[in-house]
Design a protein around this nucleic acid. Structure first.
Length: 692
RNA sequence: GGUGAUGUAGCUCAGUCGGUUAGAGCAUCGGAUUCAUAAUCCGGGGGUCGGUGGUUCAAGUCCACUCAUCACCA
């Protein structure tokens, strides 16, 4: 039966770069969603940038731009990073949108009509120069417990004490340095202390399957024990959902100068993003969010925001006429080499730096998949282990299978396969077909670590099969052609099955493997059948490069003191040597140049060429273009496959030493400064789009 | 300080309901092989299961305490 599934992952805050901690969650979510789609289910992944709040407002001000300008810029950066790691969002939106505003207002008004909104006056620190109330994080002072200086308003980094800003000694505003004043103001509260909320959450958080066991335990701490006769030891307090102007966010209906707190509209951003998708595609919003919805709804989050997703958000949904999440999936933190990510050690690794250093995003996808098991345990990225494991598993075990068989199939049998009986295959390589259900079950419960272990164990048995049958020996005896053909066909079929199993984790590699196998997009159900007799496969080209430990070193180097590095680059760019421009042209001259977005289908070294890389480019034509590009000094072909760039599509074909070049790709370079930089369109651009 | 987790080989991790001699991959060592990008196969070495105490015929597994790490809360 086809399931109807909506998935979200936590909204990244629009105030900083995407780093590998974000990628852990994005990759986990993407693998799960790709798996569901591959299984034939109706499944959507939506997310958005979280754009509201004081930090955004103040950051923008510091840069001398509007919050809108800031979040627009960050949106471009974020979506670029997601695309480069193959995160397949069905919609990536922003919380600063009409859709999110509509949802937030509707929810607020419904809660209000339900008697769950309370207004009361509270006292808060106020910056007398900036004329704004200060969030806890923007008040600093001396720790009331240990006396450490320059501590934030919520907790002390030196002694670990937690307190409120008013406890700080010699408090000052982190924005202006002024001494903050206590001022009172009316705030709006969501009445979580209402018995209806308490009762609902006590039941909801304990329902089997809603939360992971560890998460459910943790929630009981906040909710108190419903089985005890005493009043819950730790009853929920009402949740302050308003902030005073100036605040970058949505004004609360009927409350001039009051804005929704960013954490109210952030999860509602899931709904806003989905609504945007509905408006685009005609999906029915209420089928997924209405109180009567029978669709499945899942939120992937980090464990540190369980509080919001397992308590506040379900309660706001429940009492505003919506359905609640089917399940909330929390994951742990990412550490690098056993420690918190650190900017000074270079382990605070941004997604952008990972890609720019030339590392393949699927290496990271595989490594994370190999470690994620669906629990909320922390995950460590051990860089040495990362290189060894990816090289050994993916290249040594899995890809090697195709590589070992393909040569014989091409040279001896013209690329054509033998027909293999299902029964025969199961006898030759027991377990490979049979494992499909078990591996699927592992993916379903997000135990990708177990799935990967199982798949690699299968790859081991395939390599043992090669060793046992020694195709290279068979190849020397002309009477054993049929046997050789059988062995190699079995191997290609095994490779195809493993590709099906790995596809959620390695979508680009799988796409390239599909091209090699000359098959249509592989669905999970394709594991039920082998390739037919006389099926012809394409010639084999290496599907993935090994990790060179030097690349890891370069990655760390690129992230050490990343702030200074950025500053240096900016300075270098700011002082270019004066350039002499080409003679002025008219627009008609320019439009003669037909620039197109090209997707790099394949990139290969050119034997005998010092500077060239051979590119296969898709610009939406029937046949892909063959283009030679002089970018070998700056790019590793393997890292180019799958990315988009810009090409001159109407350049006269030119015969080169190594073949016909049907266009050129564009790259930036500077006189005297090293480096060569291919152009990339922002996320969303499709192969064949005109650039003008 | 309280609560929730985690701790198993050099590294990364399995270990179900308590049940033979605690497993795998990688790394390392020895051998084989040459189809494959030095890839692959066979074999060896390597562990007081963080520590202490308990329950039990039997504990990596259950209980108590304790140490270390992480998070949340006060």
């Amino acid at each position: 039966m086809q399931r109807k599934i909506l998935v979200t992952n936590a909204l990244p805050y629009a105030n900083g770069a995407i780093h590998l901690g974000h990628m852990l969650e994005l990759i986990q979510t993407d693998i799960w969603v790709r798996f569901q789609k591959q299984r034939g289910h109706e499944c959507y992944l939506v997310c958005a940038d979280d754009t509201h709040g004081a930090p955004i407002m103040l950051s923008a001000e510091k840069e001398g731009i509007t919050p809108e300008q800031l979040i627009n810029r960050v949106y471009v950066e974020h979506t670029r990073d997601f695309a480069s790691f193959h995160i397949g969002f069905d919609n990536y939106h922003t919380t600063h949108s009409d859709e999110t505003r509509e949802c937030a207002e509707q929810i607020y008004l419904a809660l209000k009509a339900n008697g769950l909104i309370d207004v009361r006056t509270i006292e808060q620190y106020f910056d007398p120069i900036k004329l704004m109330f200060l969030p806890d994080r923007f008040i600093k002072g001396e720790c009331p417990k240990c006396g450490a200086k320059d501590q934030y308003g919520d907790s002390c980094e030196v002694c670990g004490a937690a307190y409120t800003p008013t406890d700080l000694k010699n408090a000052y505003s982190a924005v202006t340095g002024a001494k903050p004043e206590l001022r009172s103001s009316e705030h709006y509260f969501f009445k979580l202390s209402d018995p209806r909320c308490q009762e609902f959450l006590q039941t909801w958080t304990r329902e089997p399957g809603r939360l992971q066991a560890e998460a459910s335990n943790k929630m009981q701490e906040w909710l108190g024990d419903p089985d005890s006769n005493a009043v819950a030891a730790n009853p929920l307090t009402d949740w302050d959902i308003s902030r005073d102007a100036p605040y970058f966010g949505f004004e609360i209906p009927g409350a001039p100068g009051k804005y929704f707190y960013v954490w109210l509209d952030a999860p509602i951003g899931y709904m806003g993003s989905f609504k945007h998708l509905c408006n685009r595609t005609g999906l029915n919003f209420d089928d997924f969010w209405g109180a009567q919805s029978t669709a499945e709804l899942y939120h992937f989050i980090g464990k540190y925001i369980l509080y919001f997703h397992a308590l506040f958000f379900p309660a706001t949904l429940q009492f505003s006429g919506h359905r609640t999440p089917t399940k909330v999936f929390a994951h742990g933190f990412l550490t690098v080499d056993g420690a918190k990510m650190s900017k000074s050690r270079g382990t605070f690794i941004t997604a952008e730096s990972y890609i720019n250093t030339g590392l393949n995003p699927e290496w990271l996808r595989y490594y994370f998949a190999a470690k994620l098991n669906g629990s909320i345990e922390d995950i460590d990225l051990n860089l040495e282990d990362f290189a060894q494991r990816v090289n050994s598993d993916l290249i040594g075990k899995y890809i090697n299978i195709a590589s070992r068989a393909a040569g014989f199939i091409a040279k001896r049998f013209g690329g054509a396969l033998l027909g293999i009986e299902d029964k025969q295959f199961r006898a030759d390589l027991p377990g490979i077909i049979e494992a499909a259900d078990e591996i699927a079950a592992n993916f379903e419960v997000r135990d990708t670590a177990r799935a990967v272990r199982r798949i690699m164990a299968l790859a081991d048995t395939v390599n043992q099969y090669v060793d046992k049958n020694q195709p290279w020996t068979l190849a020397k005896d002309s009477t054993k052609d049929a046997q050789l053909h059988h062995v190699c066909t079995t191997l290609i079929n095994a490779f195809r099955l493993l590709t099906i199993y790995l596809k959620p984790v390695l979508p680009m590699l799988a796409a390239n493997a599909e091209a090699f196998l000359n098959v249509a997009t592989l669905q999970w159900s394709d594991a039920g059948a082998l390739l037919p007799a006389a099926h012809v496969i394409k010639s084999y080209a290496h599907l993935m490069q090994r990790i060179d430990p030097k690349q890891i070193e370069a990655l760390i180097a690129a992230n050490v003191h990343s702030l200074e590095a950025t500053a240096t680059v900016t300075a270098a760019v700011a002082a270019p040597t004066p350039v002499s421009l080409e003679p002025e042209i008219m627009i008609t001259d320019f439009t003669k140049v037909d620039l197109r977005i090209a997707r790099i289908l394949d990139a290969q070294h050119v034997v005998g060429a010092d500077k060239l890389i051979q590119l296969t480019l898709d610009i939406g034509e029937e046949n892909p273009r063959n283009v030679f590009a002089g970018i070998k000094s700056a790019y590793d072909p393997a890292t180019l496959i799958g990315r988009h760039t810009v090409m001159v599509a109407n350049l006269a074909p030119r015969k080169m030493k190594f073949g016909m070049s049907e266009g050129m790709v564009l790259a930036a370079s500077g006189e005297g400064s090293p480096g060569l930089f291919l152009l990339s369109p922002d996320a969303g651009a499709l192969a064949g789009m005109r650039v003008k």
